[in-house]
Design a protein around this nucleic acid. Sequence first.
DNA 1: GCACGGCTACATCGAAGGATGCAGTCCCGT
DNA 2: ACGGGACTGCATCCTTCGATGTAGCCGTGC
Lengths: 213, 213
Amino acid sequence: MTIRVLVAEDQAAVRAGLVLILRSAPDIEVVGEAEDGEAAVRLARALRPDVVLMDVQMPRLDGVSATRQVVAEGLADVLVLTTFDLDEYVFGALRAGAAGFLLKHTEARDLLEAVRTVARGEGMIAPAVTRRLIAEFAGTTPARTADPAVLEALTRREREVLSCLAEGLSNAGIAVRLSMAEATVKTHVSRLLGKLELRSRVQAAVLAQELGL
Amino acid sequence: MTIRVLVAEDQAAVRAGLVLILRSAPDIEVVGEAEDGEAAVRLARALRPDVVLMDVQMPRLDGVSATRQVVAEGLADVLVLTTFDLDEYVFGALRAGAAGFLLKHTEARDLLEAVRTVARGEGMIAPAVTRRLIAEFAGTTPARTADPAVLEALTRREREVLSCLAEGLSNAGIAVRLSMAEATVKTHVSRLLGKLELRSRVQAAVLAQELGL
DNA sequence: GCACGGCTACATCGAAGGATGCAGTCCCGT
DNA sequence: ACGGGACTGCATCCTTCGATGTAGCCGTGC
């Protein structure tokens, strides 16, 4: 069962090098090559490869956008490859749904291993990048200061109201959304504020955000 | 320049196995062994190893807490090791500041490579875990729906007020914090709402949250 | 100089929010 | 059936918020 790979890379020399490396592995087959992002998406649709080796910087459609497209259509797993490990590229690619992120100066052996790893449905990230990913992860995910357990104290109606609060709706807006009088909305807001030990709907909205709505 | 490693693992058999693997590498030296989290922190303070190989499940003080401690004191880089790749462990360990996360069924060769990687100041995460980390990352980081550029339109004072809003402060609270009259706070709130095309302070708070305060 | 625009500041007033008291419903266990 | 408790619902009253008009301040440019 060979792994079918599509190589998307605009620089011919680099692309040739990648293909050479991939062909050296008996369990990997290069089924196509693309010179830009649009071609990558088009070929992915036509060839249905297992893995797309995708460069970030490409004409017509950049690698991140192409990745988003390929992943959205469920065409293949995408392993993003780039020369520069700029945060913008890394986080953009991962948000786009990439299964892996490697730097171009990766050893041939590690590249092949990465392709196999991604084909297995696992993930592979360049060590030099991993630290920053972890840092970003630890930072942006606000440690969940908020304990999801506090929501247990709320009734169903109160949770519904809280969701609306998180969207920034006014009491009147919530009343329409949930089909109840504005006065009733106020009751629920007041109660959930009490249970969550908050003093205003703004704090409730912030808390809801931290909990992921 | 050998890499000095501290092994923290409560099960003697597993610990012996790890030590055996580590000793097989000429560039790695096992400088100490700990049977629980407290001992791990204590030995890390005393021995100042380059890397701590830390089990998650340990008596007295769990591995995640021990990791937090070691990282907070800047004692060493921590490579967390566990049998179960539960999200709770993974994300907890990474938030605690771990530089890497491996599963115990990792090959000896990969374990050694992970230790070297972490010692270099890079990061290493088990492939089986990487996918979920990426997913969690892509999910919790709300794709920055909000464009940080909108903040450009705000004056310094307005941005300060927005930060306070994000904390859920009332106008009166903001007035105290920023040393101005409540009436003035209202002006700034009103103006920034207009510039951001929002209709209430709640929406402003939510937006600020999405932008990371 | 001085006119102009942007920033900061304050006061006023109608609108929205939040606390509280109370009533109706449903589901327990007695 | 009865009582108690939790949930939902509404109305009243006071507080906070947000829009608006206005004024002082500081830079730029004529």
